[in-house]
Each structure stands twice: as structure tokens, then as C-alpha cells.
Design a protein around this nucleic acid. Structure first.
Lengths: 124, 124, 124, 124
DNA sequence: GTGGTCTAGACCACC
DNA sequence: GTGGTCTAGACCACA
């Protein structure tokens, strides 16, 4: 894994795990790799992984069994989905709208730009 | 002005000035407020304002008359517009596309969300 | 059995056994379940149960017949009672007093709160 | 400051700050000492202090001004009070009730024990 | 000066 | 083996 220099590594790891939950790769009660294991795999200090796991645990996305490891929470997918959608609607959309207005970019133009990025997703 | 906690204040000030240039509030050769004045107005250290002005000057958006103050550059609006559009297309759009895909938000849904924010802009 | 996340599982198991001794559920020379059996019942590693039994044995609350199992000690109830009362008076009460003071909870309020939990115990 | 060995230092620091908020020593918008300063004062690594501050910030008890420091939140006292009271009622009280029942300690006996610890607090 | 992130390495309790 | 806490020290961006 290679990391964006401008965002904390531990948050990028959170994002990566959330993405894997959203796309179904990680399911409830799946064990995720230990801090040491994942640290080695990512070439990152275990403390940094620990920090990611703490964050995710605070958010109710993973839970911990003492001496055993970390596991995906029961309703992790819903939690992540809800959190991210809320963020999207409350932050990304207004910001986007503001930019479009200032830059004179119409909705049509936006659709055109998005078309390049395989927007073949169903609504839900 | 209240500042977003996750973006440097000096950049938020840059943004605010750029916005005012784009919407026509600031025109070429208008004088902008001194670092002291704006610092006081924003409740921010003048050094921070200075940093914003340096940034804008480097980008060719404002210029400096020594001992007098900072002024909006001749082609500021075009410069800003071009820079921001490039950023929008190269950064915002791909990021947006990725989020929409993960969150199963369709283009239609996006338009619907945007509609709340007065999308009555012409293309150009 | 579900375990409190902030106290070691092996101590919670000790507590549970002590409670059963105090309330008369376990009597002197009763055999308690084997580490394997109890481990399976609790969904816990047998080593963890072993650790609980060692602890209780050190405290003189249970004893071991090699190859046969663990048994409640003769004076287990008295031992437990004495130990726990000492703990209660030396640790729980001061801690309680400190909290009540900080949170402005009066003795009356405390009695009121306790009333919900069937405080029909005689003194002794 | 001397620390209890069985509770994480960073949590003990959180508690100490909460206590100072509750007793009125720290008021809204007061600046608290920098991580380095407090670390030096307590003979503790600044990282450990940082961890306390993160925790308190997550709980909405303190907030941060970039490059300036940490400050007591507006309604910190209420937040702390509410959190701790909830904890007291939901956790301490039932646990206390259970212990009293098992150890045959009556409400009167409890009051007697508490009396030593200056229980001259008003209700509220 | 401030906080924030990260590393390396240690030690501990627990399973 | 697991996580959890802590230290020491580094480097960075920001005010």
C-alpha cells in the first residue's frame, strides 16, 4: 500500500478498511489482521495501525476480543454507509455546489466529466 | 469568520478572497485590507494573513506596492478561474466519482441533491 | 456469559464463582466444573479458566484433588465474605464517597437510587 | 502528580482535568497547558498528554485552536457532570447494590461507612 | 511557540 | 500469540 502524503496514514488505513466493508470484502465477525501483522504488511509501525483500530472502534465499526484480536462489528456496513452518506450530503454536496456556481460549471458539464469514471452505479 | 478545523486557516483566507474575485466583489487594482486590519477582523494572527497574501502573490492573483498595500492583479479572475477549474476537473471530480460509486449514489441522485443549491448557472 | 470489556475475564470468572459461594449456590466440597467444561460453556480459552482456578486456590477458596477436579473449600464462604468486605470498606466506599462529592449526590439521593435494587438485606 | 499503577496515566490525567472542571477551577474558554508544558510538569511524555487531550476533545470537553492550544469547551461542566452521573447511576449504583446484597451490608451500615468521608454535600 | 503524526522499541497484562 | 500503554525522539505544518 502506498500512502497519500497529505493525509495521515492512520486515517487512510481506516478508509481502506471502510471501503472493504462497503464492498463486502469484510463481513461482520470477520477477524481483521493484528496490528503487528498489518503493520508489517503495510511497512508501517504497529502503533500507527493501533491508532486506526482505536478510531474504528470508537466509531463502532470494529470491536475487540481481549487477547484475540479485532473483529468487524455486526452492523458495520450500515454504520459506515450512513456516516459516509451523511458526510457526503452535508459536506461534499454543498461544497460541490458552491464550486460549480463560482466556476460556472453546469450540471450537464458535471455529468459529462463524471461519465469518464464509469458511473454505472444503481441508485438505492 | 469561523474556520474549518481541518484546513489551514491561511488557505481558507485565500479561498475566501478568490471567491470574492470570482463573484466580482473584488476587481483588478482594488486594494485589499492590510494584514493588520484583516487579522483583527478575523481574530487571527497577522502573520497568518501575511502567509495568505504571500501565497496569492506567488499565484499572481494579487500584487504588492511597497508601503501601500496589496492589490488585485489585472487578470486575477482569469487566473483563479483557470486554476480552480483545473483543480476541479483533476481532483474534485475523480474523488466525487469514487465516493458516489462506494456509496451507491447515482448521477440522478446527485443532481437531485444539487438542485437544492440553486443550480441556475449557465455553462461557459 | 458476556464479559465486561474493562476487567480481565479470568477475574470476572472468579467473581462469578465467589458470588455463587456467597449466595449458597456452591457449598463446601462441591465439585466445580472442569476447566475444559467451563471454557466451552463460556466460550473462553481453558487456559483462562485455569488462571481463575489458580487464583481462587491461592486465596484458599477452592482446593484441588489431582486427577479429579476442583472443590469448594471448607470455609470458603467465610473467606470470601471477609476478603470482599475488607475490599468494600477500604476501596469501594472511599471511591464512592469521592464520586458523590464531585457529582453533588447526597446520601439521601444514593439511598433513593439503591432502593430500586431490592435493598431488603438485614445487617449482620 | 503521582499515578495509580493500575489505570492508564492518560485516563488519570483526563479525570484530573474533569475534576478541575467540576469544581470550577477550569472555566469555559480557559486555556489548558500545552502538551509539552503539562508533560514536563507531570514528568510524563508529551505524547501521553496528547492522548488525554484527544480523548477529552472527542468527548466534547475541550476544543482546539490551531497553533494556539487547547481550551475548555463552553458547556464542559454540564457535559462532564452528565456523563459522570450517567455512569454513576448506570454502573456504580447497580454494582454497589449487588455487593451490598451479597455481603449483607445494609443501607444503614453504608451510611455509617460513608459518614467518615465528610458527606456534607447538598443535593441538586 | 503550538499541536499532530510517526517511528522504534520497550514492557505489561491477558488469552 | 494478542492488544495497550508509555517513552524518547524525530519531523512537519501551522500561528
Amino acid at each position: 500500500m502506498d500512502f497519500n502524503a497529505h493525509k495521515p496514514i492512520y486515517l487512510q488505513i481506516c478508509d481502506q478498511i471502510c471501503d472493504r466493508i462497503l464492498n463486502g470484502d469484510l463481513k461482520p465477525d470477520d477477524r481483521i489482521r493484528s496490528v503487528r501483522e498489518l503493520g508489517a504488511a503495510f511497512g508501517v509501525n504497529p502503533n500507527t495501525i493501533m491508532r486506526s483500530y482505536e478510531q474504528l472502534q470508537n466509531d463502532g465499526i470494529i470491536y475487540n476480543k481481549r487477547g484475540i484480536g479485532y473483529f468487524i462489528a455486526e452492523n458495520a456496513k450500515e454504520t459506515v454507509m450512513e456516516t459516509k452518506r451523511k458526510q457526503f450530503i452535508d459536506e461534499s454536496v454543498p461544497e460541490l455546489a458552491k464550486k460549480m456556481q463560482l466556476l460556472h460549471i453546469s450540471a450537464n458539464k458535471l455529468l459529462e466529466l463524471l461519465a469518464q469514471y464509469h458511473m454505472d452505479q444503481p441508485d438505492d
